[in-house]
Amino acid sequence: MILHTLNKSPEHAALGRCCETIATGDVLVLLEDGVYCGSAGRDRQVGELLAQNIAVYAINADVQARGLAVRMTRGVTLIDYEGFVQLCTEQASSKRWG
């Protein structure tokens, strides 16, 4: 399965395109401005992915840097870069959206 990375805020069409394409068993890693997609008020699509049991992660350094630590959606798992590497090893390939 595929590890999808998303580095753009919900303003950008990348989020919608990613959500249309992601499949059961894939995982999504939010990084850089992508972490806004998992924050309160901006998390509609990410919420839908979580409801479909698609695992969504966010890079903690990006969350902290943007002041979003208390605003992240329940169900989005915060990871460090080591966790990101680990997820890459578990998925067959990766796809960047941005």
Binding site: N7, D80, Y81, E82
Partner: peptide, 14 residues
């Protein structure tokens, strides 16, 4: 952009 910084963090984590 942040791409280089993210890539460097990732590389170190690898």
């Amino acid at each position: 952009s942040q791409a280089s910084l993210s890539a460097w963090h990732f590389a170190r984590a690898v």
